[in-house]
Write a protein that binds this DNA or RNA. Structure first.
Length: 574
DNA sequence: CTGGGGACGGGGCCC
DNA sequence: GGGGCCCCGTCCCCA
């Protein structure tokens, strides 16, 4: 029994020793693992800090890149001579629903003087889709700041998570003032040095980010020049190249330029795609979405840009513009522009696009012919100085400067003549009062609102629609007058007869019947006419459309025999 | 072909 | 500044 007790004690002792040993081993293992674990944690923390630093630097680079863009916008905004640009074509794009829908495409104008084809400045947000935009940035600055670390950063954003600042910067030129201080500082210090530029590239078809790095010192050089020559960029040789229109610079001009003649979003009724091709070659389909045939009717129900939206848009745009009568600011709105490669630019303005289905379509001109024949229609207004080729403006704006010049040409060719014929024109003696110029035709107006109204001539905007028919009008007064067609109202009565007229001009014209006045005389013969249209028809006699005109009375005949009969019958005694 | 009217585009002026 | 009105020019159509 005693032996048993001793044995039991020994066993217990051994068990205790074994237990202690086991605990010690376990503790030792735990300590070792803990040490390893702590070491790993420390290393991970170090890596995290390094990655955070890199991320921060990359964010700064992104901000810097944005700042470059926005600063360039400011360069445009701060155009000399207190010039202000209001891009009214955003409304056109709105009509396409692109902008309101969030679709934004900023494209390099093909053939742009200062942009290269390989410039990666392309931001394309497509709303309504789940497309993820991968911003891939590889910057030498990052490498320098975080040596040894990875320079690849993936940043994926889904729809709706768009950076508000980013969006704001892109959407409005006014946001150009919101340049991050860091970015501006960076610009001021590093711009002169070539550096790696960040490219924002949409990677389609790949769920994950891929790396794309582009070093474009040339672009930076251009950007730098633009950033630092805001006051003298008019003298930029490249901008001087704009002088192909023969537009000398006009320093100190007091003209304020309204409107943006850049072509806007194309809504071609013939082309399958709503495309606006930009490039060097002026062959670009252009039409306005003011398609009466497709327009909804009714002032109250219509929501297209031509009506309420348009008004709203215009008001917004011009309210912006009016905020800065001094020309201190710039409102540059973007317009969706889709570039298909570097397709040549061609502006095939087709009146069927412009006014199809509208009796007023006749007023639209085929600008192609005008473009051919009026390339030298020079306007000596300083406004052309500002039709620059600023890559920022073109990237942010609705189109490239080629389209702008095109508009200059074609619109000057048509509207300027009419405007000048009606006492307008930039060179009028009262140009000081009419210091608000239309960007399309240079016609001067006394206030911006009149420019806005006038520019409907060029834009095709017809905000006022008749609720009784499909007719649309650019002027409210014309709509009001038109409605007499439906009401039958004829408030103008002739005092000499029973006739009544819906328009005062009609009455006045009618009264020539009573007075015998014939103010329109033929320069080829002695015929006189009470109506200009009749004279115009008559002139065809002399222009060869009728080959056989009577030398006595001017009457013309399609065949010589008819003329002979006429002369024998009416002038045989002569 | 001419005369005449309907209707619209658009600039200028005034309130 | 905005709206209304006037006016001119123009196109189209018809008798």
């Amino acid at each position: 029994m005693a032996n048993f007790m001793v044995f039991h004690t020994q066993i217990a002792s051994i068990m205790e020793m074994l237990a202690n040993s086991a605990v010690a081993d376990i503790c030792k293992l735990i300590d070792d693992d803990y040490a390893v674990f702590r070491l790993e944690i420390t290393q991970s923390q170090k890596e995290n800090r390094a990655l955070q630093r890199k991320l921060h630097i990359l964010e700064m680079n992104v901000a810097r890149e944005r700042a470059e863009k926005t600063t360039q916008e400011r360069v445009l905004a701060s155009r000399p001579s207190s010039v202000k640009i209001l891009d009214r074509y955003r409304g056109m794009a709105r009509g396409e629903g692109h902008l309101t829908g969030g679709h934004r495409s900023f494209v390099k104008p093909a053939g742009h003087n200062t942009w290269r084809d390989d410039q990666p400045i392309t931001v394309d947000d497509v709303s309504g889709t789940s497309t993820q935009h991968v911003i891939l940035i590889e910057s030498a600055d990052v490498e320098a700041a975080a040596p040894g670390g990875s320079s690849l950063v993936k940043q994926e954003r889904i729809e709706g998570e768009e950076d508000p600042q980013h969006s704001r910067d892109i959407q409005t030129g006014a946001a150009a003032v919101l340049v991050p201080p860091v970015a501006t500082d960076h610009l001021s210090t590093t711009v002169p040095q070539p550096r790696t530029r960040c490219s924002i590239t949409e990677v389609s078809g790949t769920p994950n980010a891929t790396l794309k790095s582009e070093t474009d010192t040339k672009t930076l050089t251009v950007t730098q020049r633009l950033l630092h020559t805001r006051s003298d960029h008019r003298l930029d040789p490249e901008r001087q190249e704009l002088g192909r229109l023969g537009c000398p610079l006009a320093p100190g001009s007091e003209y304020l330029l309204y409107g943006n003649p850049r072509p806007r979003t194309v809504h071609s009724h013939r082309d399958s795609g709503n495309t606006l091709e930009t490039g060097n070659d002026p062959s670009c389909s252009y039409s306005t979405e003011m398609d009466p045939g497709n327009m909804p009717l009714g002032l109250e129900t219509q929501t297209d840009l031509s009506r309420g939206d348009w008004n709203q848009y215009s008001s917004s745009v011009y309210s912006k513009g009016c905020q800065d009568e001094k020309g201190e600011g710039l409102v540059v709105d973007e317009v969706t522009v889709k570039v298909e490669g570097d397709a040549p630019l061609a502006w095939n303005v087709d009146e069927t696009h412009l006014g199809e289905g509208n009796s007023q379509g006749r007023d639209f001109l085929d600008y192609r012919g005008s473009l051919k024949t009026n390339l030298n229609v020079a306007t000596h207004s300083p406004l052309h100085t500002f039709r620059d080729r600023d890559p920022v403006s073109t990237s942010m704006g609705p189109s490239d400067s080629h389209g702008s010049v095109f508009f200059d040409q074609v619109l000057n060719s048509n509207d300027t003549a009419r405007a000048q014929a009606q006492g307008g024109g930039t060179t009028s003696s009262n140009s000081k009062e009419k210091r608000f110029l239309c960007m399309f035709c240079n016609k001067g107006f006394s206030c911006p609102q009149k420019v806005e109204i006038h520019q409907r001539v060029h834009t095709g905007e017809k905000p006022f629609s008749c609720t009784q028919c499909h007719m649309r009008f650019a002027l409210a007064g014309n709509l009001k007058r038109h409605q007499r067609v439906h009401t039958g109202e004829k408030p103008f009565s002739c005092p000499q007869c029973e006739k009544r007229f819906s328009q005062a001009g009609d009455l006045k014209r009618h009264q020539r019947v009573h007075t015998g006045e014939k103010p329109f005389s033929c320069t080829q013969c002695d015929m006189r006419f009470a109506l200009a249209g009749n004279l115009k028809m008559h002139l065809k006699v002399h222009t060869g459309e009728k080959q056989f005109a009577c030398t006595h009375c001017g009457k013309s005949f399609s065949e010589r025999s008819y003329l002979s009969i006429h002369q024998q019958k009416n002038h045989s005694t002569l």
